[in-house]
Design a binder for these strands. Structure first.
Lengths: 337, 337
DNA sequence: TTGAAAGCGCTAACAG
DNA sequence: CTGTTAGCGCTTTCAA
């Protein structure tokens, strides 16, 4: 493995000069530079980024912390699409991405902040974390620049990007109301998700704006899991047979709900309208095609990366960025008959 | 940021001792060790992996090179599922994953070997690369331990993991033949994919084993793109109206084919049987549910990671690993009427 | 059981 | 424009 030392020797100059030449400093004689570059090429030189990082005290890496990157979650294209947005932005920069896995057994031994500090990542993007995750506090207490995805928390070194969950939910439920529905149930995620909290608020708001009474029994938690939503919907439809529509806090859960409804011989959308959230690839392919609140997951990731690199490169303060959602009306919702 | 120097000072020992204590060497007095550990905790010490990597000349990182991690390819859960397998295995090891993006504009400036060498990754996993990609040769010429996914190339420092594509294709086509089909078309990927080559061989083999003449005009390339497969199938069905079934080299392309067939008022599977390859999440949700050759994508990734870490940790020679596929019979194929 | 010293490959004052 | 020197934080002989 050739180093600048080798180059220096071969080119008959000092390592300093080699360093400067190779880093494009202006105070190097054109001939010397040429000579050095030639030797570098000849010796097939690759700079050692570890050494550089050590002295410059920055690694030009961004840590990526995702839970949701498990075997099961692949079906739900959400996490992945966000990652793809992050990846694509980062690809245009000098940074590389280091993937930390949140579902690992490393977990017990090392916290994520430890992982980040050891690897000396310049910043970190965090996705899919629960509100009660201890890591949340860890990050806030550390001083690593950070962007959260879908967690509206910020400080002088952490920003976030999210979508307008409350408004998205409100629009979805309002859509059902406009279709004539009054008995609208909700299958939510879980208590430890910010988005669930916000979507529930949106649900309540839509009801309230239309003078519909909120009924606690109409709301179940499906933990963002298809199978769990299936079970909850089964229970829901049995306990509350008069409901005519369900707002699900994720498409995957909506799929579970549809299965449950079909199982109980509901026709969708004739007997029961179902609306999802996310607009994952699956949702337009299932039958009936799912009406859903579309989130631009790619942009979520892309913006997170953009914001973080802004903080890193230009020392800009963290942003708080909220993206719009869009209601995609397809075949799973219809006028109440 | 506290370093071992600080700890040494505070604990009244030398940095050497601190290093040894913290790394669990046996030749350090129990009391001294305790003291050092306490101070480390008190000072909230995190080791600097960059410094360690520099001196030990290994970074404990694995490079991950994927093309196919773009916005478009998210729908096709393939890449992602492989990555999830890699990620899950690696999570149990001391290694972290560094993501290199193949579709970047960095591309023009730096080759991937350069990227890998600069970052000093200990090894690399490579997926979704074309047979004519210059990086293939670069890797072979370098001496970085490497595992290819779906590229059956090996040397003393590179192994691969793939599935039995020829056999998978053979079984798929044979299934159609058993259903009574004789006029079987194929929508393949492209010339620069190993798997395409192998699947074509399997297709031919099945025909040959059943004394069916191979007809070149029955084979089109869809580049693994849904839209392209749609177009090719449209052309195919017009040019060769007597075909009764199509074997597609990917599920995404099968979906394109189905759309095309529907467009031309073919009923599936009554008028036309279509079989896919991959078994992506979508395939069981579309209608009709897709008969397909199922690959264990997760295992593909998991094994790649396992093989690579074996090479790195135990200096084992690279393996060549071929996984089995499984025909999943669903609703898109039926007896020729 | 401990410490001194050298060095991993690189950058960055500073001096010339 | 170029070189000398010091040092980033850590590990590793070697000697005590």
């Amino acid at each position: 493995m050739t180093t600048i030392k080798h180059i220096a020797k071969q080119a008959g100059v000092s390592v300093t000069t080699v360093s400067r030449a190779l880093n494009g400093y202006s105070d190097v004689n054109a001939k010397t530079r040429k000579k050095i570059e030639d030797v570098a090429k000849e010796l097939n030189y690759s700079p050692n980024s570890l050494a550089r990082s050590l002295v410059k005290n920055q690694s030009e890496t961004i840590g990526l912390l995702v839970s949701g990157f498990t075997k099961e979650s692949v079906k739900d294209g959400f996490t992945v699409e966000v990652m793809s947005g992050i990846n694509n932005f980062v690809a245009e920069t000098k940074y590389d991405l280091v993937l930390f896995n949140t579902d690992s057994s490393k977990q017990r031994k090392k916290t994520y902040t430890q992982l980040c500090k050891e690897r000396r990542v310049d910043g970190v993007i965090l996705q899919g974390i629960k509100t009660d995750d201890p890591y949340l506090e860890e990050v806030m207490e550390s001083d690593i620049p950070c962007v959260f995805i879908d967690i509206p928390v910020s400080s002088d070194h952490v920003g976030y990007v999210s979508t307008d969950n409350k408004e998205g939910a409100r629009v979805a439920v309002n859509h059902l109301i406009e279709l004539g529905h009054r008995k609208i149930a909700m299958v939510n995620g879980h208590e430890q998700a910010f988005v669930s909290k916000e979507r529930l608020e949106g649900y309540k708001l839509a009801l309230q704006q239309n003078n519909i009474q909120f009924i606690a029994e109409y709301v179940k938690n499906g933990s963002f899991i298809e199978e769990e939503a299936y079970k909850q919907t089964l229970a829901l439809l049995k306990e509350q047979p008069d409901i005519t529509s369900i707002f699900c806090a994720s498409d995957l859960m909506a799929i579970g709900s549809i299965e449950a409804a079909k199982e109980l011989n509901y026709k969708i959308p004739e007997d029961l309208s179902i609306i999802g959230y996310d607009d994952i690839p699956l949702s337009s392919y299932i039958s009936p095609a799912l009406t859903t609140v579309s989130q631009n997951k790619y942009d979520l990731g892309y913006n997170a990366a953009r914001m973080l690199t802004n903080m890193l490169k230009h020392h800009q303060p963290p942003e708080r960025c909220i993206l719009e959602t869009e209601l995609k009306i397809r075949q799973s919702t219809s006028i109440r008959l």
